[in-house]
Amino acid sequence: MTTDTYTGGLDGAVIAVAGAGGPAGRAVLHRLARSGAHVVAADADPQRLADAVDGARYEAGGSDVTGEVVDLFDLDSARAWAERIEKDHGRVDGLVHLVGGWRGSASFPETELSDWDTLEKLLVRTAQHTSLAFHDGLLRSPGGRYVLISASGASAPTAGNAAYGAAKAAAEAWTLAMGDSFRKLAPGDGPVAAAVILVVKALVHDEMRAQRPNAKFAGFTDVRDLAEAVADVWNASPEEVNGTRQWLTPRP
C-alpha cells in the first residue's frame, strides 16, 4: 500500500503504463521510475513485460516498478486492473497508453479491410477500455493524467495507410472526449485531471539504428525523447494540457 502524501507531479505518483513491453514502454518505465513514481506496467506478452520491468528496476536503482499481464481487449479486465491499482496503492495518478500496431498497403485500392479489424482492436478498443477504466480514478487524483501516443498520420493520412490513419484519428477523438469530460466534471473553474495526446511521426530506438546504420529516420522521435515528453505532462497544469495535442514532430 502506498501511504505517502501526494499533491501532484511525478515524485510519488502512481502511474500505470499500458503496452509497456516494447522499446517505447521500456523508455517510459525508466523515466517515470527515475522520477520517483510508483509504476505499474501492463503488456500482453509476459516475457517482454518481465524484461521491461526488470530493466526499469535496474536502471532506476530498484525503484517501485511492477508488472501485470492484462487483456486490454476486454473492458472488464481493464477495469479490474484499474481497481487493483487503487486498492494496492490507494489511488491512481496516471495512465500512459502505449499500445500500438501498424498495418499498411502499397496503395489505397489494395487496402485490406482485415487491417482495419486488427487496428481497430489494437489502437481504438484498447484506448477506449483504458480511458473508461481509469477515468474516475484519475478524477480522484490531485495529478491525474491520461496520455495517448498518436501519430501524425491521424491528421494527414496517406493512401497506403488508410486503416492506420483512421484508427489513430478515432483514438484521438476518443481521448479528446475524455478531456472534455474532465473539464465538465471539474469542481471549480478548470479541470483537475487532463487527457493529453502526444503526436509523433514514428518512433526510433537504438536497435533500429543498429539494424539500419545508414538510415536518417527524418522526423522520427527517439523513444527517450518520447519518455521526456510523457514526464513533462505532469510538469504542466491540467488547464495547460487537457484536451491538447502535443506535437513531437513537425505538423503536416
Rank of each mutant, 00 (worst) to 15 (best):
T3Y: 07
D4H: 07
T7R: 14
T7M: 11
T7A: 10
G8R: 05
L10W: 01
V14H: 01
A20H: 08
G22E: 03
G25A: 05
G25Q: 10
V28P: 01
L29Q: 02
H30N: 03
S35Q: 13
A37L: 11
A41H: 02
A42T: 15
P46G: 08
A52S: 13
G55F: 14
A56L: 10
G62Q: 12
D64S: 09
V65Q: 02
D71R: 06
D71E: 07
L72C: 00
D74P: 09
R79C: 03
I85L: 04
E86Y: 02
D93P: 08
L95V: 14
V99Y: 02
S105M: 14
S105Y: 10
A106M: 15
F108S: 08
W116T: 01
E120A: 15
K121R: 15
Q128R: 04
D136S: 12
L138A: 03
G143K: 11
G143N: 11
G153F: 13
G153N: 14
G153P: 14
A159M: 14
Y164D: 04
Y164L: 05
G165C: 06
A171E: 00
T175G: 00
T175N: 07
A177V: 15
D180G: 14
S181G: 15
P191E: 04
A193V: 04
A193L: 13
A193D: 00
A195S: 15
V196G: 06
L198I: 13
A202F: 14
A202V: 00
L203F: 08
H205G: 04
D206M: 13
D206I: 12
R209N: 04
R209P: 08
P213W: 14
A215I: 11
K216P: 01
G219N: 11
F220M: 05
D225M: 00
A227R: 01
E228Y: 11
N235F: 07
A236N: 03
P238R: 09
V241M: 10
V241I: 14
N242I: 01
L248K: 04
L248V: 02
P250G: 11
